[in-house]
Design a binder for these strands. Sequence first.
RNA 1: GCGGGCGUGGUGGAAUUGGUAGACACAAGGGACUUAAAAUCCCUCGGCUCUCAAGCUGUGCGGGUUCGAGUCCCGCCGCCCGCACCA
Length: 868
Amino acid sequence: MSVERYNARAIEPKWQRTWDEAGVFRAVNDPARPKYYVLEMFPYPSGNIHIGHGRNYVMGDVVARYKRAKGFNVLHPMGWDAFGLPAENAAIERKIHPRSWTYENIDTMRAQLKLLGLSLDWDREIATCHPDYYAKQQELFVDFFANDLVYRKESDVNWDPVDHTVLANEQVIDGRGWRSGALVEKRKLSQWFFRITTFADELLCGLDTLERWPEKVRLMQRNWIGRSEGLTFSFDLEDEAGNLLDEKLTVYTTRHDTIFGASFCAVSPDHPLAVSREAANPDIAAFRKDFAALGTSEEAIERTEKRGIELGVYARHPFVEGLRLPVYAANFVLMTYGEGAIFGCPGHDQRDLDFARKYGLPVIPVVMPADGDATSFEIGDEAYIQKEGDSTVLINSRFLDGMSVPDAKDEIASRMEAAGQGRRTVNFRLRDWGISRQRYWGCPIPMIHCEACGVVPVPKDQLPVRLPDDASFDKPGNPLAHHPTWKHVDCPSCGKPAVRETDTMDTFVDSSWYFARFCSPRAEAPVDRTAVDYWLPVDQYIGGIEHAILHLLYARFFTRAMQACGHAGIAEPFEGLFTQGMIVHETYRDETGNWLFPEQVNHGEDGAVTVAETGAPVTVGPAEKMSKSKRNVVSPEEIVDTYGVDAARWFMLSDTPPERDSEWTQAGIEGAWRLVQRIWRLVGEAGELAAGESAPEQFAGAALDIRKAAHKALSKVGEDIERLRFNVAVAHIYELTNTIGSALQQAGKKPGPGVTAALREAVELLVRMSAPMVPHLAEECWKALGHDTLLASVEWPEVDPAMLVEDTVVLPVQVNGKKRDELTISRDAGTQEIEKAVLALEGVRKALGGAAPRRIIVVPQRIVNVVA
RNA sequence: GCGGGCGUGGUGGAAUUGGUAGACACAAGGGACUUAAAAUCCCUCGGCUCUCAAGCUGUGCGGGUUCGAGUCCCGCCGCCCGCACCA
């Protein structure tokens, strides 16, 4: 039997051209057809992709091809998250304009992506740095402004001294800039903000509706939003001598039930009360200075002990006449949360307890377990904090004594509200989203500052505000601000000379609505309502877990904001979310510690790893995320040249569950390549064999077994793809190839009746169910099997349900939970019949040793357990 | 510290969600074919006892629920991820 080797290098480009020419992946807005929108997070055009980048696109592609075959009108677009700092850095370092750098990278990466044979609608390609895109983004900004979703305020900002820009809180990691890694400084600047907190509650509640999101991501977002219910109330203040002051101290608390355990108050060192006492007391000034010097580094804060300084001011206890609480400035109170002030209840908050012990403040327990003894209950080194569901009782709390914690909270809140002293409040950890960036390569904020009229939006008919081409990048800071002419305009309102806003938008803005733009990528408006109403929400979104909070939260906010402005009819952009794992690879270093590329090392038979050229020993490091700096990358070109892209796709889907990191290995890609060859061979052999026979009326014996195996595999593979369990789908395909392989060998000698017809069907099904994963191979096989249609547009085969049910089942038979025998019996045998048959089995008789069974448990079509 | 997840052969991992643990693949070993190699095909492959037959044991550790536990519950151990002075 001579079947020619499958030549991926020649065949793959052929089919890519054919698909392209036939336009099979072009998505047409067609409200009459059921739609399916698959989207992988679009890439930043950094220069090159490595094979590791391909995994999520391949996963998305499997879904896209499968859904297309299932009859859906599939939207599967691709674009570029093209604004951002690296382009500007390239401009500074290599004197290339950010635009040229970006578009060159896009060209390279597009070519690389095309190698992967993805079923993308390239007609809808967008780049966020293109004026057609950012013009619409500016329009959205103006609409948001009109709807009070954008505002400007002076605020402390995180200033990145290396990138010369402001960072959002979320972009500061451990006190360092997320990109530059530089220690972030505090500065005051006027900044543009999106009012994301307007939707704080909605963004939280919305999470409950996202059933096809990983629980983990929803939890992370929940924590990030950080909703808490509490009470905001004010203390009267007095001075040392007991004179009532004009100022009051407003605090936020979630533990107002512990008010009788309060023994001090604390404010942030940045709180006005602390600031106002600075001049009078040099110690306070020194304390504040120390605190500022501490910086924002989390590490520094962690290591610093909790300290405070008395302000010489006292808070009058709201319920205990004559009791006054000293007010401290304390380094653990955040100005940005709540009111920047707290009351301390050492008995029931660990931090407060540590503080109280340090400064010798009273510790009064006011809550104890319901079954405790109030006279002996004491607080030691640990504050008593009740857990959810614990039954508690208030003590030492006058009118609250005997109440539970929730009841006591209610009582205090009601009394405070009645007295006009406080109100129930809901607080969020979530802050408004600061989007101003002092950079060139971003979307200009379409606003104009006029001395007479204030801040005026650029009228829509004057959009876009284009980036000037002739910016210079040799000075630090913002090139737009430096530009000699760009920022000077006439005020659109009064016509007098005015100045453009020179800030550009955070690039997270660009990626917050691109999925909507894909629905109508060339529309005049930011989105065409008919198109977004048809396509959105995205049915399946695929991307890295690193975007679990920021990008996904921003996109959810943007969709709501667009809804508020009439640009969309929905609140949640992504109905299904899947976070895929990365591709990792071993690292290699030579004796001098230099990183080596995988192709520079040899793996010897004895397991020794050496430098290919010199034979010198190599230190093999653990598998890590592929990265240029560690050289543990594999290029798509190299793999496609050697094994073909189908082998690479197959390998990326095999073995490892898609949400986990997967290790790229030589053995793995070779195994995938063998499978490609194997399917090709099976198709060839089955083709030769099947020439003669026509299908019989009834299949039986070996032929029936083959049909059953094929239809079972088909059914499983469909389910597995639906559930994104690609590794399991792969295993089922292997299983079927094994079945077909063995059957072909048997048949080669003496095919039984119907076997060749069954084999022919099985091979066709094999090809069709593999098509989403190895589309080029499948297309070539489809043709070899004599079809003249394009498999890419052929519908998914129907499972024959009759092939999924067995007439007889093999039931494992246990005695006392241990498997002793098997019972082959008719599928619909009754319980009594089964029990009888089971007791006759030799394995059972032996295990029972003549004793009578006490009980027999029969789980229909599953298992039998005999209890002795 | 808080929250979440995970722990299965030499390796990646399956297990219809409480019903035959180890599917499928990789690696390894043995064999067939071949002048030889490649390719392909066949066999073995958790551990222990053992000539076979068979038996015992086994899903991080210890307990529990159940006719039956990788799966559920309690307590440990280990690893990973997220958040972190949030009042």
